[in-house]
């Protein structure tokens, strides 16, 4: 970056007196800065790597002649053995699991956030927040165990063994909901907390009750922040892998029944890559096409969420 400037400095230094104030070449400093820049650039390389890897293998998949892009994005049957690669067989269950997870996480997470931000005493907060942090820190494979050995038997005891299959999207979805609940509640609570106290005072001053203040003033004022939390939660649920790999079932199936087994996009990637997979086969390439789709979906959601958050911050800063 500063090579030409540096050589000039050397020349000047040689000619100049001992104690001049000219810029000095500090090799060590420049080297350190270059190294630190490299550290930052690794993240760019990572992204490029992801895009390149997913893109290249997906390209191989679509140019293999066995499947067209249209068949991929419109088909509802995923059976590599007979050359059927319809993403909806997997995407449908991913969306279903995500929807179930959101049915659990959004209302619960928001209610917890409102409770923590508007109602809970300092003492209650100091106990509840670490509990939620613990919940957030449990590895997903443990949640997978929980889904299979607790949630599924629980659902079966309610709805009956003949209705609820051992592997099903409902149990996986509910447990993913529990997994992302701390995320929703802590992000939403931050948003509620950021609403200026003066607005609450104004509402109380007009004779509003605590509920009216929380629901009709604070929550609407925090809409963008809460929305961002919701979007991140959706993205997280879509990308969640171990819970569905363990509890949702192996084998793509296009079904809308949450009590039936159905493999999701992530679950399929794990199962295929976990087996003995020969590189450069169509199966191998196909998981990268799924991966690309997953990447695009989650990235889009994350970018939207960060824009929404920015909107929220601008409103109050």
């Amino acid at each position: 970056m500063t090579v030409s400037a540096s050589t000039r400095t050397i020349a000047k230094t040689a000619a100049a007196a001992k104690s001049d104030l000219h810029k000095r070449l500090r090799l060590g400093e420049s080297f350190i800065e270059a190294f630190l820049f490299f550290c930052g650039a690794v993240s760019i390389l990572t992204t490029l790597g992801i895009v390149f890897v997913l893109g290249k293998e997906s390209l191989l998949f679509f140019t293999s002649g066995e499947v067209t892009l249209w068949e991929f994005i419109s088909g509802t049957e995923w059976q590599p053995a007979i050359g059927r690669f319809g993403i909806w067989a997997l995407l449908n269950s991913t969306l279903m699991v995500t929807a179930i997870a959101m049915l659990v996480a959004l209302p619960l997470g928001l209610a917890v956030a409102i409770y923590l931000s508007e109602y809970a005493s300092l003492r209650a907060r100091s106990i509840l927040k670490p509990v939620l942090e613990v919940l957030a820190g449990v590895p997903t494979v443990v949640y997978g165990y929980f889904a299979l050995t607790f949630m599924t038997p629980f659902l079966r005891s309610i709805f009956g063994d003949e209705i609820v299959q051992i592997y099903n999207t409902a149990a996986a979805g509910i447990v993913i909901g529990i997994l992302v609940l701390p995320l929703v509640s802590s992000m939403s609570e931050d948003a509620l907390h950021a609403v200026p106290y003066a607005l609450r005072e104004a509402a109380y001053g007009l004779g509003a009750t605590k509920l009216e203040t929380a629901i009709k003033v604070v929550l609407p004022a925090a809409t963008y922040g809460v929305a961002a939390a919701f979007i991140v939660a959706i993205s997280r649920a879509i990308g969640e892998t171990m819970i569905v790999a363990i509890a949702a079932g192996a084998g793509p199936s296009f079904t809308f029944n949450p009590f039936e087994s159905a493999e999701t996009m992530t679950g399929h990637i794990v199962r295929i890559s976990g087996g003995d997979l020969s590189y450069d086969s169509i199966d191998y390439n196909s998981i990268f096409a799924i991966g690309l789709m997953l990447f695009v979906m989650t990235l889009t959601l994350n970018i939207i969420s960060r824009h929404v958050v920015k909107h929220f911050r601008e409103e109050y800063e």
Binding site: G239, T241, S273, F295, T298, L299, R306
Partner: peptide, 15 residues
């Protein structure tokens, strides 16, 4: 970097 933090871990596995 902010975007990478939200990429599902399975994608890193593929990378």
């Amino acid at each position: 970097i902010n975007n990478l933090a939200g990429v599902p871990s399975i994608i890193y596995g593929m990378l």
